[in-house]
Design a protein around this nucleic acid. Structure first.
Lengths: 341, 341
DNA sequence: TTGTAGGCGTTATCAC
DNA sequence: GTGATAACGCCTACAA
């Protein structure tokens, strides 16, 4: 592999009989440079195919204009939409995104955080893995005042911002809706309860049962990996129950859709025998039959909000610490899988 | 925002009464440094919380260890799995990924390519947008010998590598299968025919019709945006046809699933009235009813292959130009949506 | 085996 | 308005 020699501001300066500093200033529209020299400089830059060297600039300025993103996995619709929002903002504001996935493992998350740290990202956007216990691996960032924004799966920390939805309220709303439809025995299938999203949905679920005078018992709860297979397994487990539920609230749509399919294949009528609700408003909810009741989770918007907040802070436009929790609007979407009337 | 002073190799050198060069060498396991000094150096590095400055190193080495990725959109299952594969390889080999999306627009793709170029990525992984006509925006890279690997939506160029599946063969297989199931009038719903993936599937489809003695005519072809809405629209269009097809081959699963739903809602029996097949083996195929016949498209594997090839080339392990087209294995998956027997 | 010195390209600080 | 100079932190001939 062979590298061509790149033109530098020195080369431009020589060609224009100017000093490198003038060229540097001219290139970045400094007010103290005359219009005419600016024009000359940018013309010559084009002619010599000059491109600014980000690394020299970063080195000098001690900034990287790079933001690290750590997500549980790339292959989920929700994550993909969040990233799309982040990418849009970053692109517009001249930042780059370095994306990595923890694959739901704390160990990998720690390694990723370290890589991000060594790459001197200017800031970090994080959604935590299933089994992350604490956030020691981010103390590096906090100590060095590198801003950290959590989204979706967050860890409340007074020096970090969070972008979330109201999981409690939505969990409550889903459950209350199932109760209104006549469900008396509602199973909740969810993920690791250390994670805020699952914990709060669960709390909302319990509160709704309580509010309606229904009794919660542990056998109504199933903690799973919340993927395709978990949905299938959950369906099979339910089929084997002595006392089957008449309603199921699953904490995500992929699991819900797969669970529903297993139940239907075994002769269960949805929603007559069992009413089902998921969470996320994944496109999958609109192709399964019956269409799945769910909660709209505005990933794209959240990505935009998280990235904008971080970048505004980095650019000195606003101070991230003034608001350290943003709750994005979300709402129940009722469809046939839970509609009995 | 306030930045702490970072320790440099000079600080380590001073603390250890060594020279900066020894420290530099010790840190990267240079063979000419004695075990004992290496140990001392790495201990001190830990103690002083030293982290290597990538930018200084990049500046010096004229390499960035960064790979640019341009995809049509992040929010597709296929793309997400490809990225997951790429991320894995990059992470293992010490490279970073800068990811951007063209949103199916040539204009945005051009802008993204420029950003990547200015960020001096060491290499580029690209899947083209719907409406990209040519690849002028990549000539910069080619001229400077920055390696370029296309995947999925490729542009055949003698200096670039491609990672693809055999779209022709699979298009042929899908269509032949529908014919075997008794279909006589098979509609093909696909994307912009400038893109290899759609063009070749279409060619395979036509060839299969021809091989079976069926006649192709233009009214059997529908070119769409291939998203959720396109599937719905396609379903409605088919319902209004004077002469309805008895088989549909759609070039992706999301479109297929949505199209199928519209047909079913209007009383069409799948597969008895119309047999349907999609493409990609998206998880959606396994939750819709009937389950969708499709083509397995190994995204994760393709991501790994594309990234590995690029990085091996960058690291001088292999020469990318020796093989400039890799065809990954893929195959027809027959499910109920097309099975009449 | 370790040390010296110069340069990678940019920008901030002074000076004029 | 423009120019000279000194960092930013690292790497690698070349010297010792």
């Amino acid at each position: 592999m062979h590298k061509e020699k790149e033109a530098t501001i020195y080369d431009l300066a020589k060609a224009l009989k100017l000093s490198p500093s003038t060229v540097s200033r001219g290139l970045k529209d400094h007010p103290e440079i005359s219009k005419s020299t600016k024009k000359k400089i940018s013309q010559m830059a084009k002619q010599m195919e000059y491109r600014s060297n980000t690394f020299a600039s970063n080195l000098r300025k001690q900034r990287t204009h790079t933001i690290g993103v750590i997500v549980p996995r790339l292959s989920s619709y929700f994550v993909a939409t969040v990233l799309a929002g982040m990418e849009k903002v970053a692109n517009e504001k001249g930042y780059n995104l370095i994306i990595s996935q923890s694959l739901e493992s704390e160990k990998k998350e720690i390694a990723n955080a370290k890589t991000m740290f060594n790459n001197r990202v200017d800031g970090l956007l994080v959604s935590l893995a299933f089994d992350t216990k604490d956030v020691h691996h981010f103390t590096n960032f906090i100590q060095k005042n590198i801003p950290l924004v959590f989204f979706d799966r967050v860890y409340e920390h007074r020096q970090c911002m969070s972008v979330v939805i109201d999981n409690f309220k939505n969990g409550h709303a889903v459950t209350s809706h199932l109760i209104e439809q006549g469900c008396k025995r509602i199973t909740h299938i969810t993920g690791n309860l250390h994670r805020n999203v699952y914990k709060e949905r669960f709390e909302g679920y319990k509160k709704a049962l309580h509010d309606a005078g229904l009794v919660y018992s542990n056998e109504l709860l199933m903690v799973t990996e919340m993927n395709e297979q978990a949905g299938i397994d959950a369906g099979n487990t339910i089929l084997k129950m002595k006392k089957m539920p008449d309603g199921i609230f699953l904490a995500n749509d992929v699991t819900a859709a797969n669970c529903m399919r297993v139940l239907k294949q075994n002769g269960i009528k949805i929603p007559q025998d069992i009413a089902i609700a998921g969470f996320n408003n994944d496109p999958i909810t609109r192709v399964v039959e019956p269409n799945l009741t769910t909660v709209n989770y505005p990933g794209y918007e959240m990505g935009i909000i998280a990235a904008t907040s971080l970048i505004n802070h980095l650019d000195g436009v606003s101070n991230i610490l003034t608001t350290n929790k943003i709750v994005v609007k979300s709402e129940l979407i009722i469809r046939e899988s839970s509609l009995r009337k």
